[in-house]
Design a protein around this nucleic acid. Sequence first.
DNA 1: TATTAGCACTCTAAGCTAATGAGTGCTAAA
DNA 2: TTTAGCACTCATTAGCTTAGAGTGCTAATA
Lengths: 349, 349
Amino acid sequence: MLDERSIKVLWAVINSYINNPDPVGSRYVTRKYSLEFSPATIRNIMADLEELGFLSQPHTSAGRVPTDKGYRFYVENLMDENVCCHKGLIDSLTRRLEDLREDIYTLLDETTRTLSIHSHYLGIAVSPGPDGSTLRRIELIPYSDDRIAVILFTNEGIIKHKILKNNFSFSRNDLNKIARYLNREFSGYTIKEIRQRLLEEMAKDKELCDTLISQALSLCGDVMSCYGANVFISGLTEILELPEFSDIEKIKEISRTIEDKHAVIKLIDSLADAEGVQVVIGAENRVEEMKTLSIITSTYKEGDKPAGVVGIIGPTRMDYSSAISLVDVTARFLTEILDEGGHEWRKGR
Amino acid sequence: MLDERSIKVLWAVINSYINNPDPVGSRYVTRKYSLEFSPATIRNIMADLEELGFLSQPHTSAGRVPTDKGYRFYVENLMDENVCCHKGLIDSLTRRLEDLREDIYTLLDETTRTLSIHSHYLGIAVSPGPDGSTLRRIELIPYSDDRIAVILFTNEGIIKHKILKNNFSFSRNDLNKIARYLNREFSGYTIKEIRQRLLEEMAKDKELCDTLISQALSLCGDVMSCYGANVFISGLTEILELPEFSDIEKIKEISRTIEDKHAVIKLIDSLADAEGVQVVIGAENRVEEMKTLSIITSTYKEGDKPAGVVGIIGPTRMDYSSAISLVDVTARFLTEILDEGGHEWRKGR
DNA sequence: TATTAGCACTCTAAGCTAATGAGTGCTAAA
DNA sequence: TTTAGCACTCATTAGCTTAGAGTGCTAATA
């Protein structure tokens, strides 16, 4: 599709633009990348690349700037894949996350911080949602006369808790009985599966009319229903340093995006199924406010089930090769941590 | 100190400036506030007020702008105190926080959101720290072969949990015994008190050499040590709409402030002891990056002990009367909620 | 035929000037 | 004591010019 010369020029333009957000001129390309052609020739090639949609001109007498299509081509064909010396990242991940292995929320929060510091873009992480979390155990503890605390332990070390008001007042003994029942029935399943089974069981239960069990099921349902994915984002300070965010309107957009965590979950969820690192460039994105941003994500796993997502959000003019490998490394790191935390449990299951 | 005329003028200037961040001119004051003097007279008065430090001029031929001292005088003497029609706020607090009574973290998070929406400034909340939290009960639950989950229930409905690796492997029975011991010893005390007593007990324990108990104490200490206050801030989108934040540098400052939660805790802590609503205006603040911001806080209580802090951060040009009553109402509301959640427990104590 | 040198042309960014106007301080009159 | 009048200051804006970077086209060159 593109001859070697065009590719060289395209690469040069994108590479230069990633390092410095000034439109790239023909003269500059020949000089800086010491190509064996004159500026005039480069101009012709650039004109061709523009016609093909890989480059564009902000105005007639300016240099060229990559388009989304240009970046896409770059990511898929031209990128330097061997940016693997993330010693620094691994070090700081290890250092920061060491003590947090068992509390995945703090862990993810710290992860986003580490990602943003190393990438200078926004770091983002989504905790396992109902599909990704496996129930390990459920505990019921009396809290006050008419309230009980329901505590869910999951495989990822998440502990979800809720204090529920209940009409019947259970003895500690009752609670133990209920808990034992629930554990027997549900532990080892994902939250999503449990929700489904709860519906079935509760339908069945209408016939059984066992108050204790039906109470148990409804308790369980209450907690499950508020079990959602959680988003962590950090690095606002980092991206404010980028020249593309010197415009107030742009900043407002970003801030709206960040504060609306609901929208972020939705966005990320659509990328969660795919294997490996996902790259969405600029207008490929569906969300209006992110059409000038790129997002790179990868899923971390718990066992072999995808659990949650980590990633980076930055301008389309992003250092893709570095960002992609950062995300990749981080996702693998998290997967490993979850593995260590959970293996003795999976063995016993 | 100030005659009635000067006060009228000062009030007019501040009132006008709060509504619209343009330097206020003498002509404008006579017109808008229909004072019985000519612009020339007003000018004289303004010159006096400037000399006294209540007003200042951005440049020679501009109108006047209130100084921090001016705002301080306004807040203490001139403010309209009867801005109590916070029906909307109470409604939305009630609606949003209804389901969250027992999870104070989510509760505070939602509170900041509500505060920011109603004030159009940053909403801020700090959860009870070790001084404010009273231990209600402690539970120990086996998590895996070599780990146990320690769960703290506090009076504010906070549940703090940590999963600890321990060298000895305790039976469920052992754990129950330990838990009973810890509850007998420590429930009803604040976290801070417990930390102190732990130190004493552990010193004593050297003589006793009771492994189970000493293990219990060390477990307890581990969890206690990570018990800190938690900050919630929201409303970035709101304050970005204000004209004072049209400058990128200002935004960077704010974003640094927001992301450094540690600094915020420190700042807020210094205000936590005082009774009622606290107002810190501009450079009265110690933190360099907040010298152009004002902060309004109030403590919410649990029983009669101060628990945590809620507040608003905005520009010095802030609608103080509305902001102050917003914060006041919100703090009372939280206190009430905590009271409802906890009273049956305190009865029994 | 592919490449390149040369040149006229385009467009932005930066700097300069002048005009505008809001607001002041001072003085002298009421 | 208050106020009208007036000269003065200074930020803001618009208009204009210049410099410079980069282009596209054409004609010469290898």
